[in-house]
Amino acid sequence: MKNDRRAFLIAAGAMMAGALLPAHAAAQPEVQQAGTLRVAVYADYAPFSARGKGIDVALAQSLAERLGLRAEIVEFPADENMNDDLRNMVWKGHYLGHRPADVMMHVPVDAQFAAQNDKVAIFGPYHLETIAIARNPERVPSVAGSAAVAFEVFTREKIGVELDTHASDFMLHVMNGRLRDNVVHFRSVAEAAAAMAKGEVSAVMAPRSQLEGAFKEQRQFAIDTLTMPELRVKGWPLGMAVKADHKDLAAALSEALADIQRSGELARIFSAHGVTHRVP
């Protein structure tokens, strides 16, 4: 009886302590280091993650808090493709010895892409990204219709794009390459935005969230989402990835994300960085 009573008191104390902890903290999922959620985010990728700040960083911290964990943010440079990023930061680790994270942010939630990466579980869409063009309305009219109509202006005006991106590939090949001479490459969307502010280019093509973040203080420029038929990829949901067998962690993160979205905190995180949150 004494042992039974002691067991009951321990259990009751655990339940009371659990009631005082953040949501989901009483039954924490398995993580690499007790009390810590190690989160991988892209380096130098404003407005999502750059030097310890950004949308993905703030969201990761909020997710960890709801799980009763401390967020350890790991910024890493993008590899040649996202398959490599998932291998390095989620399921295996980097060949230089860097260990993987518990979860990686900013992963496209796409069935075909997920099928190519069966060592990870991709889940939790938290934002719908789209391709857009920021433009100087005094030099570039509203971008609408087919590429032949919407982009005719770029036979005369220069447009900036980030190196090695979908926007770069599209602008170099659309209209049978007619615009190639007026496509200017930059190392980042931020650099392209700075060039546009100086008048060196009249438009910038990139993911809309990056454009909104880059031009949040420059309201004189317009941003148009692209929907033209020639654009193969118009939008994609952004989510998270964990190791394929970490189902409990994926479930806990999904529940925490739902709480964050219901409370309005997710929209506030995006707004604080000058970006409009779009529900996938």
Rank of each mutant, 00 (worst) to 15 (best):
M1F: 04
D4N: 08
R5P: 00
R6L: 12
F8V: 06
I10H: 11
I10Y: 10
A11M: 06
G13M: 09
P22S: 03
A23M: 09
H24W: 06
A26K: 04
A27I: 06
A27W: 04
P29Y: 03
E30Y: 01
V31W: 10
V31K: 04
A34T: 04
G35C: 03
T36W: 02
T36S: 02
A40I: 03
A43L: 08
Y45M: 12
A46R: 10
A46C: 08
K53D: 11
K53R: 14
K53Q: 14
G54A: 09
E65F: 13
R66P: 05
A71C: 04
I73G: 02
E75F: 07
E75M: 01
F76R: 12
D79L: 13
D85L: 03
V90T: 06
W91C: 01
K92C: 07
K92V: 01
L96P: 00
L96Y: 02
L96M: 03
G97H: 11
H98A: 13
P100H: 11
D102M: 05
D102I: 04
V103D: 10
V107L: 11
V107C: 11
A115P: 08
I122R: 09
G124N: 10
G124D: 10
P125E: 05
P125V: 03
L128P: 03
I131E: 08
I133C: 11
A134V: 15
R135F: 07
E138S: 05
E138W: 01
E138F: 02
S142V: 12
V143I: 15
A144Q: 14
G145T: 08
A147N: 06
E152P: 01
T155E: 15
I159S: 13
G160D: 08
E162H: 07
D164Y: 07
D164N: 14
H166K: 09
A167E: 13
D169R: 13
L172T: 07
R178A: 15
R180N: 09
N182V: 12
V183W: 14
V183E: 14
R187N: 14
V189C: 15
A190F: 07
E191Q: 15
A192R: 10
A197S: 08
K198F: 12
V201M: 09
S202D: 08
A203D: 08
P207S: 10
R208I: 04
R208D: 03
S209H: 14
Q210R: 15
Q210W: 01
R219C: 01
R219S: 12
F221N: 02
I223R: 09
T225V: 15
L226D: 06
P229I: 04
P229G: 07
E230G: 11
L231I: 10
K234M: 01
K234A: 00
G239N: 07
D245N: 13
D248L: 06
L249G: 02
A252N: 06
S254P: 01
E255Y: 01
E255T: 08
I260A: 02
Q261V: 04
R262F: 03
R262N: 10
R268W: 04
I269T: 11
I269W: 13
G274E: 08
T276I: 04
H277Y: 15
